Amino acid sequence: MKAIRILVVEDETFVRMDAVEMLREAGFDILEAVNADEAIRLLALHSDIRLIFTDIDMAGSINGLELATIVQKRWPPIRIVSTSGHYKIQAGDLPAGARFFFKPYQPTQIIDAVHELINATWGEESH
Rank of each mutant, 00 (worst) to 15 (best):
A113Y: 10
A44T: 01
R16K: 11
H46E: 10
D57Y: 05
Q90R: 15
V114A: 15
A33M: 10
G85T: 00
R24H: 04
P76G: 14
G60K: 10
P77C: 08
A91C: 04
F14K: 08
L31I: 13
Q106Y: 11
A96I: 04
V114W: 15
L94R: 02
A98K: 07
R16S: 06
D29S: 11
H86T: 02
M58A: 01
L51D: 04
D93M: 00
I89A: 15
D57C: 04
A59S: 12
Q72P: 01
E21Q: 08
V81H: 03
R24E: 13
R74F: 11
M58P: 03
T54F: 12
L51E: 05
A44Y: 02
I70Q: 12
L23H: 09
Q72W: 04
P76M: 09
T13G: 06
I111R: 04
T83S: 15
E25K: 14
K73E: 00
L67K: 06
H115S: 07
K73T: 00
I56E: 04
R16G: 02
L51I: 07
E21G: 07
R99L: 00
L31T: 11
A96Y: 02
S84H: 01
D29R: 12
Q90M: 13
E32C: 04
P76W: 13
N35M: 09
F28Y: 15
L67A: 08
D37H: 09
M22A: 02
L43I: 12
D48V: 05
A33W: 13
I110T: 06
A96D: 11
I110E: 06
A26E: 03
E32N: 06
D37G: 12
A59M: 03
R41M: 11
S82E: 01
I89N: 14
P77D: 13
G97R: 08
L51Q: 07
V71C: 03
E12P: 00
R50K: 02
T13E: 12
I52P: 01
T83F: 08
A98C: 05
M58D: 02
K103S: 11
G97Q: 07
R99W: 01
I78G: 03
L67T: 08
I30P: 05
G64S: 01
R24I: 07
A33D: 14
R79N: 05
L94F: 03
L45H: 14
S47T: 14
F28C: 08
T83P: 03
